[in-house]
Design a protein around this nucleic acid. Structure first.
Lengths: 214, 214
DNA sequence: TTTTACTAGGGGATTTATCCCCTAAAATTA
DNA sequence: TAATTTTAGGGGATAAATCCCCTAGTAAAA
């Protein structure tokens, strides 16, 4: 059975060597190189012929960080799967890394068995996304499931939805079968409740709270 | 070895029966029930003692849909892992389903081997997120990189972003260090380009195209 | 070198939007 | 039942937004 060729890129020697030992322990893995940063990785590809299957990539590194390096791989060696291995679990970093083309994102404190599983999955299926990462993404997708305490009445909600269009208030009044003056009252009530100063404010609120869909 | 107990919830009998056959083919799976919608699933739990390990859940169903049913499971039977199995691949549906607590999301046109893999993963690790789903999430997390055919100039873009706030045009002029009359020109130019009739139209466009994030 | 595109600016008019103050019937709730 | 809330409506004024028409310098393209 063909071994999975792996390159480790991490500037912390202690960690990368430990990782080297750990990964090499598994029969199906073959660590072909340990590098210190993205620049060395780029250099590696211009010198060597053996293209790895999977790169275990740290993110914070001197010279050229993991995000840049992953981007470079996507552009120049798209067949190489990048598995990010990082201490950072903030959503911005995860997003940057995934957008750069990483096929998975693991925190460094995971159990070796998970790493083993992840590498296998990335090799076999091309990706491995943990619950952790997916949840982070979910959180970024502005959630606001919380019903934000503000309670809007049916008619106000109706007006609010119509206000999120290019209709004039007169048009809205017609559509709601109300006098423009009544619509005016709904507008003022919503300005108060939603702390808006202009109709734009209403629209922004409605979209944020997913009262209207785009 | 203990078999993985599975319940199938899908209103299309033809499909659910086919799925039943397919899943039953695998030795390690044991389909204990096939139900037609969420309501039947809730009823099942009030009548039966066998709690499944994994529920294969369709989304569009009469009476009680997959999102509601998944939510109910999260609240009442949190140990049951839901694997969504749907035709819908729009981002809103995926988001709703994952937020409701689904541990994975597969399209119905996948290869049986992937379904087998996904069920095993969900059972063993508690989740299975495909590249497809993760990419959908990534897309939702507003990327303002791509420009949509309409080419807006730097200054127009700047104005557009500011227009998506409760600022008056005079405020915007101040912020951009321009005369109100010049801002007026940008406004008119954008009305023309974006086919808007009011400032609300600009805001809706900017949000749709993820030029501004909320 | 002439033309085109971009940026910046203005006059003047009309329509909408915003603000504040006020009435009254119906439905709810205390 | 009395008090309050909800819904529907109006008068009148000011500020903001929208519309149309027009000028001019500068930079880029033909």
């Amino acid at each position: 059975m063909k071994k999975i060729n792996i390159v480790i890129v991490d500037d912390h020697m202690l960690f990368s060597q430990a990782l080297f030992g750990l990964v090499s322990n598994y029969e199906e893995f073959n660590v072909i190189k340990v590098l210190n940063n993205g620049k060395e990785l780029v250099a590696y590809f211009s010198e060597n012929s053996t293209t790895p299957d999977v790169v275990l990539m740290d993110i914070k590194m001197p010279e050229m960080n993991g995000i840049e390096a992953t981007h470079w791989l996507k552009d120049n060696k798209p067949s190489v799967k990048v598995l990010a291995l990082s201490m950072e679990c903030d959503e911005v970093t995860i997003l940057q890394m995934l957008r750069a083309g990483a096929k998975g994102y693991l925190l460094k404190d995971i159990h070796p068995k998970i790493l083993h599983h992840a590498i296998s999955e990335v090799y076999k299926n091309g990706f491995y996304y943990t619950e952790n990462v997916t949840n982070t993404l979910l959180n970024s997708v502005s959630i606001n499931e919380k019903k934000s305490s503000i309670n809007l009445k049916e008619r106000e909600l109706e007006f609010l939805k119509l206000a999120c269009s290019e209709r004039t208030y007169k048009d809205i009044a017609d559509e709601m079968c109300l006098s423009p003056k009544t619509v005016e009252n709904y507008r003022e009530a919503l300005f108060e409740k939603l702390n808006a100063k202009t109709r734009i404010g209403l629209v922004l609120y409605a979209i944020k709270e997913k009262i209207v869909r785009l």
